[in-house]
Design a protein around this nucleic acid. Structure first.
Length: 382
DNA sequence: CCTCTCACTGGAGACGCG
DNA sequence: CCGCGTCC
DNA sequence: ACGTCCAGTGAGAG
């Protein structure tokens, strides 16, 4: 669930931290991506008309492999080298949150089963998407595919987002590529959003720079973490009646949650009972991660025959499609390491030249520029 | 009237053809 | 440049 | 053996 409302807080209070980056300027960048989150999205989205996932003849789901294969290749075509990070064991503090989600999913499972029985495809589709769960098999399938593709992956001991942040902090990758704002709370210096579908949807990549977030909010990192806890994180409740506006001003005035609890009118804004905000804070400050020095992150040549044997032989993919996909990977991969290594740390944003690609980018940018900037409204979710 | 919170909802991938 | 069906 | 996250809506409190 990330940090509740953080993206709006940043947009309102630290706009300078946000930068729209043409996808071209991302060429050569290495990025850490939360694998489980990607798989989850594929399992939800990659379906056929009847709401069923794609499967091979044996009935094994293939939606996640399809998504992983093509999205990864698309990133490579743009010169972006992903390293996938898999979740480990969730922290104990998350168990309350997880229990809530489990109960919800059970309800959805029942509703989906009922809809299936009565032949209500619309409702079956709707509810079955809410029953999606990434299993060990899904993860293992994707690890096998990535290995064959020559794309590195890491198994995090705990939260993938925290591991992504460490990789970026250490310089092993340029940024964490995620939609999940708590990657910033875990301390990634740069967060890249809308990375995966920027080309397909003409949505610009947005970079969020942590240093500028802190500058704009006039907070230290510790104050920022406390603010995130007040906004609402996965690890503990927040104070009822304190939303984005009050969270920002309370931290600015009192600097930390301890002082806020002293000064705040506890009749009006009672803190949750047995509120483990200090433990949550500790999870953000010092998360359980593997040290970056111990990790080996290398992109290798894809094993075309291996990929074909797996996807075509075992999973029923179309051979021509798989081979041409791998060819794209091989072509862009060698192109990347040969020519472009030089400009890989310069994020320069420039007006762009005269290529058709550049022109398309500018059009997309202009369109999105007029459609957005609408900062007044209030948005809420659950 | 304005500001804010909360609850509920829907939609979400990538490709290629016409 | 789209809308929409197909991928497995 | 878990797991989203945004954006739009409306109701209600202060």
């Amino acid at each position: 669930m990330g940090i509740h409302g953080l993206s709006k807080v940043i947009a309102d209070n630290a706009p300078a931290a946000l930068k729209e980056v043409p996808i071209k300027a991302c060429f050569g960048r290495k990025v850490a991506v939360d694998a489980s989150m990607s798989i989850y999205q594929f399992l939800i989205a990659v379906r056929q008309q009847d709401g069923m996932q794609l499967t091979n003849e044996a009935g094994e789901t293939t939606s996640h492999l399809m998504g992983m294969l093509y999205r990864t290749i698309r990133m490579f075509e743009n010169g972006i080298k992903p390293v996938y990070v898999f979740d480990g064991k969730p922290p104990d503090m998350k168990s309350n949150e997880l229990k809530k989600r489990g109960v919800k999913r059970e309800g959805a499972e029942k509703a989906a089963a009922a809809a299936e029985e009565t032949g209500d495809t619309e409702n079956f589709d709707k509810f079955s998407r809410r029953t999606v769960k990434v299993t060990k098999e899904h993860n293992d399938d994707c690890k096998k595919l990535l290995k064959l593709m020559g794309v590195p992956y890491i198994e995090a001991p705990c939260e993938a987002e925290a591991q992504c942040a460490i990789l970026a902090k250490s310089g092993k990758v340029y940024a964490a590529g995620s939609e999940d704002m708590d990657t910033l709370t875990f301390g990634t210096p740069v967060l890249m959003r809308h990375l995966t579908f920027s080309e397909a949807r003409k949505m610009p990549v947005v970079e969020i720079e942590l240093a500028k977030v802190l500058e704009g909010l006039e907070m230290t990192m510790d104050q920022f973490i406390d603010m995130c806890i007040l906004l609402g994180c996965d690890y503990c409740d927040s104070i009822k009646g304190i939303g984005p506006t009050r969270a920002v001003s309370l931290i600015k005035e009192h600097k930390n949650i301890e002082t806020i609890l002293e000064k705040l009118d506890s009749k009006k804004y009672p803190a949750p009972e047995d509120w483990p905000y200090q433990a949550a804070r500790e999870l953000f400050r010092a998360p359980n991660v593997t040290k970056a020095e111990e990790l080996d992150v290398k992109w290798e040549a894809p094993d075309e025959e291996g990929v074909v044997a797996y996807l075509v032989g075992e999973k029923g993919f179309n051979e021509d499609r798989v081979r041409s996909a791998i060819q794209k990977l091989i072509k862009t991969r060698t192109g990347t390491t040969q020519g472009r290594l030089g400009d890989y740390f310069k994020p320069v944003e420039k007006p762009a030249g005269s290529t058709s690609a550049a022109k398309r980018k500018m059009d997309a940018k202009a369109a999105s520029g007029s459609a957005k900037k609408k900062g007044g409204s209030f948005m809420k979710k659950k």
